[in-house]
Amino acid sequence: MALLEISNLQIDFGATRAVDGVSLAIEEGECLCLVGESGCGKSVTALSIARLLATPPARYAGGEILLQGRPVLRLSQRDLARLRGGVVSYVFQDPATSLNPVMRVGAQIRESLQLHRPAHATDAEILRLLRLVGIPAPESRVRDYPHQLSGGMQQRVMIAMALASEPKLLVADEPTTALDVTIQAQIIELLRELQGRLGMSILLITHNLGLVGDLAHRVAVMYAGQIVETGAADELLRRPRHPYTQALIRSVPEIGRERKRLQAIPGTVPSLGNWPSGCRFAPRCPVARPECPTLQPQLLPLSGDRLVRCPFSEA
């Protein structure tokens, strides 16, 4: 049984459907990368795993989320509280606003320990966690306030807090977007190392295709509230099959690749809920056919474990 199984998830905000029929599974010890641009529904999907969306405005309109076999969308508040942190922990994009500014770093980690592993809420365990995430001189850092730390160090503290409860699944929502390139490399390296050492599963949410190959075993690409392609990470990056994934990979400049001109994707990313009718990528698709705006393409198996939402892609 998979650790996390999302099937046909639908989430509405008022009359707009932000997430439309998303299905995902994460095995134990696996890293899945959810890639997409702003407004595609990737963060909303991630937040729904621990039912963290405020309802209203959000409404779980359909589908099922099974975490360790338990139906998240139907759990009582009590069971939910045990699940949050206990089974699934989160690391968010902006560590500066996710940490409590008036609490010392050590105290924030202790809080997480007291909630989930009260027997281990000790100074020694706090120092062990800070050391685990690579914070130098943790003895002096525990008494720091978040503003005394750099962005990279703050993100390490966030990760230490998330790991304090020994979660089965770590959801990292754009964990390096606010960081510099050399610091980003440190954090990705840390996540990879922790995953190997602790054997936990990771759901990495990112808009940066370049981070996928570093960490992910599998990838799911989202566009306009739907998954358009999923498959094994290296295979998908090497041979993308959906026109959106193909166009996205072609549109980013890469060092050492000689190109006169970038192949831009025309138009703009559709805003939340303003999804085009028919195939949602059709208006921007370089290989769209006249019938595409009227089709409702399904996510179908292509070859191996690859699923693609385009009837015209070839194996």
Partner: peptide
């Protein structure tokens, strides 16, 4: 440290320590 999409052209990464 620049992320690379193509899995076949991964570079040896030099991870700098410190901030």
């Amino acid at each position: 440290a620049v992320p690379v999409v193509d899995p076949d052209s991964k570079r040896q990464r030099i991870v700098l320590s410190g901030d």
